[in-house]
């Protein structure tokens, strides 16, 4: 028996469940489709508008037509030619990558420990970690800011990154995935002479690759699009991330909406590519996180 198929099997079963035979032509089915269509439209419309605006000249921006009368790549040339934008893109990429790596390491390490070791206070620690999920970011930014100020982390990469280096959600997700790794694997490795860290790294981690992929995507996307905290902790234009940088297009004297839209369109590309490639992991991650509560 292997863990891969176990995880896959569990997820597939759950994913397969909604596809159970459904009566076509039933009024309920039409209503469902209608609701889904409306929901989809609400989701997609701003993105389409953004994309459309990025190909328009400023005079056409407030027209309702989606296809520009006079399409142009001028906005893209301007945005990509702006050295600040490339810097922000680089900042976002660096921050999202480091934070993702950190989460993969620490979330899975803590999740594994909470899942596979019995020690006093284990449940309490798990509940404490989980309960942090209930505190909204808006409430945390002030203590984070005070902390950054005291430690001299304001306007630095570390300042932007530190609150997200480990997350309760990631810890929970990884713990749930490790539940499906049979203890026999770990015991076999223990007998084979590996120490506990090696067992985690060489045996347990490869068995939860789908979870790691899902977590990596969640964290990367979350950090790529993070706005509030980077906005608060950064001061200099060089330290901005893309979402914060785009704001400068909007608050300068002339609000360059076509520039904001173009920048946003470019910034969306990596997230779109990542999602398209790894969407099955994202869905599986959501399924697993919800499955074994």
């Amino acid at each position: 028996m292997t863990a891969g198929p176990v995880l896959k099997g569990a997820a597939d079963r759950v994913l397969a469940a909604p596809a159970a035979p459904r009566r076509k032509g039933h009024p309920g089915a039409y209503l469902r489709w209608l609701l889904l269509f409306a929901g989809g439209l609400i989701m997609v419309a701003p993105l389409v508008w953004m994309l459309s605006a990025s190909f328009k000249f400023s005079y056409e921006l407030y027209d309702l037509n989606l296809i520009p009368v006079e399409p142009t790549l001028r906005n893209y040339e301007k945005v990509l030619g702006d050295p600040r934008f490339l810097r922000w893109f680089g900042n976002s990429f660096l921050i999202a990558t480091i934070v993702t790596m950190s989460n993969l390491f620490f979330d899975s390490l803590v999740g594994y420990t909470l899942c596979k070791f019995r020690f006093p206070g284990r449940t309490l620690i798990f509940i404490a970690i989980l309960s942090t999920l209930m505190i909204p970011t808006e409430m945390l930014v002030i203590p984070w800011y005070v902390m950054s100020q005291k430690f001299g982390w304001l306007d630095s990469y570390w300042g932007i990154m530190f609150p997200g280096m480990m997350t309760a959600f990631g810890t929970f997700l990884m713990k749930q995935f490790f539940e499906s790794v049979p203890d026999d694997f770990l015991e076999a490795a223990r007998i084979d002479g590996l120490n506990e860290f090696q067992i985690w790294w060489s045996v347990a981690m490869p068995l939860v690759r789908p979870a790691l992929a899902a977590l990596a995507i969640f964290v990367f996307l979350g950090n790529w699009t993070a706005f509030l905290w980077p906005l608060i902790v950064t001061n200099s234009v060089e330290m901005y991330t893309i979402p914060v940088g785009l704001k400068t297009f909007a608050v300068e004297q002339n609000v360059d909406w076509e520039m904001v839209m173009t920048g946003a369109a470019i910034a969306t590309l990596p997230t779109l590519v990542i999602f398209l490639i790894f969407q099955r992991f994202i869905i599986r991650g959501v399924v697993m996180a919800g499955l074994k509560g």
Binding site: M1, T2, A3, G4, P5, P182, D184, F185, E187, A188, R190, I191, D192, G193, L194, V203, P206, L207
Partner: peptide, 16 residues
């Protein structure tokens, strides 16, 4: 690891 034993598990515990 220091007991000089080897164990075969019910579900084989082969690393997939």
């Amino acid at each position: 690891k220091d007991r000089d034993i080897a164990m075969v598990f019910q579900n084989y515990a082969l690393y997939p």
